[in-house]
Design a protein around this nucleic acid. Structure first.
Lengths: 140, 140
DNA sequence: TGACAAACGCAACTAAGTTGCATATACTGG
DNA sequence: CCAGTATATGCAACTTAGTTGCGTTTGTCA
């Protein structure tokens, strides 16, 4: 079973704070990567507002501890999701903005590409960004 | 041989303006996608400054005419490159920021993935974002 | 050459993200 | 259980990317 951020935080013995617990909760139960404005709105909804600076700093902390990862949908802002989720990509509907996770087979093709790139350009790939845009079942 | 934006603009009979010609020139000779701040700096260097609003509007115009496309490297800002270049991806060095173009074979794998996605999730892919991060030959 | 649409500049604004500094809070050892 | 310390938080001010409204200029075509 997939571990939650909440559990992992406890396990790692990291300092327990109000904001940390709340953000872990939101990210654990989110069905898609969340932006800082969205996290802020969630905090407000839970009558537990926080300064945006603190949110950015807390996210940086979680990223440093490999608990959260940044995702980019090309919107001009970053999104964040639990790094405990297995590596996957996203399908983003251009009409209703719905986000669906997708896992691409074994990842063998990607590894093949990275090898090809290394051979061709002498470039060592450590990371990649792959997202799909289009229309979901409802909107197509 | 690859057509330049300059040639294509002439061919299409679009209105000729100073800014349009300059931006076309910059994008034609750029070795990597350029951001608006970068375009602005290039304009200044050519003693031909323009307002950023005009640059954004001009880029929107060029995109509308399928002459330019947006690219995202997850920096929180957009980059622009000639849409006359064949479809390709980028290798972005995390140390020196150098950008190298890369073309992934026939694109057959990508098409296979898009079919898989359509079958699995009922999602019609119209576009994708794929960039690679790592270390170039010099920096690895 | 004059009229009209398109292009442009300017000012003011929004939104994401950052920095410095002062204050508050969570954990530790005594 | 309390005091000290490192960490977390809040606040204000700032930076950078991008947008909007509006008035003025410029390119094109008749």
């Amino acid at each position: 079973m997939l571990k939650t951020l909440k559990e992992k935080l406890l396990e790692l013995g990291l300092r327990q704070t109000r904001l940390r617990a709340l953000l872990a909760d939101f990210l654990d139960s989110a069905s898609e990567p969340l932006s800082v404005p969205e996290l802020n709105r969630l905090l407000l909804k839970h009558k537990n507002q926080a300064n945006k600076t603190s949110i950015y700093r807390e996210l940086a902390f979680l990223i440093k501890h490999d608990l959260v990862r940044e995702v980019e949908f090309g919107e001009g802002k970053k999104r964040y999701e639990s790094a405990l989720l297995p590596h996957h990509h996203h399908l983003i509907c251009q009409k209703c903005q719905q986000v669906t996770d997708v896992t691409l087979g074994s990842g063998a093709e990607m590894i093949a590409w990275e090898k090809l790139i290394s051979a061709k350009a002498g470039f060592k790939v450590t990371n990649h960004l792959l997202e799909f845009f289009g229309f979901c079942q409802k909107c197509r």
